[in-house]
Design a protein around this nucleic acid. Structure first.
Length: 222
DNA sequence: CACCAGGCAAGTA
DNA sequence: TACTTGCATGGT
């Protein structure tokens, strides 16, 4: 067990050394990060940036403006992010939660437990586990490990020999199991969770697209 | 031309 | 529970 923690940290520092700090999440305010988390669902960040820039240009990047804006008009503004009709509705649902239940107040949000926040986020139509956890970690600074397709691919591609079968990771493991795996074997540290997820994404984008292929991969020979 | 990207919900079996 | 499908733009 202790062995796994050391291994995970060793991988972490190797990636950190290779790629440097990722400075996630891009975004100046918690709201911008929340909006980005919804818009980036199955979408490249590049396209999300365009949508967010449109929102800024229209002066729509506030809880009040987003709460009040017409859904049709919102879909028009965020069009570059793709799935714009669905995402406009999801954004409205998300903003509605913060506006109506938490007074659009980051200070107030800081008094609410992570468990309660996660439950209310998952109650929003359009927010699944990854989006909820991204908001918790990157917008609200809670120590929650984010699992995404890169994380699953990372585990799939690197065991064994990188990871031993005794770790119990299987291809079709659920979100909760994989998240639990990381949180059980890492210190409860939001800085590590923040950087680890970002580094896994960076690794995946550069080296491990679809099949196990570690040519030039910084984890080779670790 | 095909394929993918920092998911999710709804439908089917 | 475990698949499948629709959603849509923009880059490779």
């Amino acid at each position: 067990m202790k062995d796994i923690e050391e291994r995970l940290l060793r991988i972490f520092y190797r990636l950190l050394d290779a790629f440097g700090k990722r400075y996630w999440w891009p975004g100046d305010t918690p709201l911008e990060i929340i909006v980005g988390a919804v818009l980036t669902q199955n979408t490249t960040w590049k396209n999300v940036e365009k949508a967010i820039n449109n929102l800024k240009k229209e002066d729509m990047l506030s809880f009040e403006a987003l709460y009040g804006v017409d859904e049709k008009r919102l879909s028009d503004i965020i069009k570059p992010a793709g799935y714009y009709n669905i995402k406009s509705n999801r954004l409205k649902n998300t903003i509605k939660l913060f506006y109506e239940e938490y007074n659009s107040s980051i200070d107030y949000l800081s008094t609410i437990s992570t468990e309660k926040l996660r439950k209310s986020l998952l109650g929003v139509k359009g927010i699944g586990k990854e989006t909820a956890d991204s908001i918790l970690l990157y917008a609200l600074n809670r120590p929650v490990f984010v699992v995404d397709t890169y994380t699953k691919r990372f585990l799939k591609n690197h065991r064994p020999p990188l990871m031993d079968d005794s770790w119990g990771i299987k291809d079709k493991d659920s979100y909760d199991y994989i998240q639990g795996f990381f949180t059980r074997h890492l210190p409860l540290d939001k800085y590590i969770y923040n950087e680890y997820h970002a580094l896994i994404v960076c690794l995946g984008q550069r080296y491990c697209k679809k099949i196990p292929d570690c040519g030039g991969c910084p984890l080779k020979g670790i």
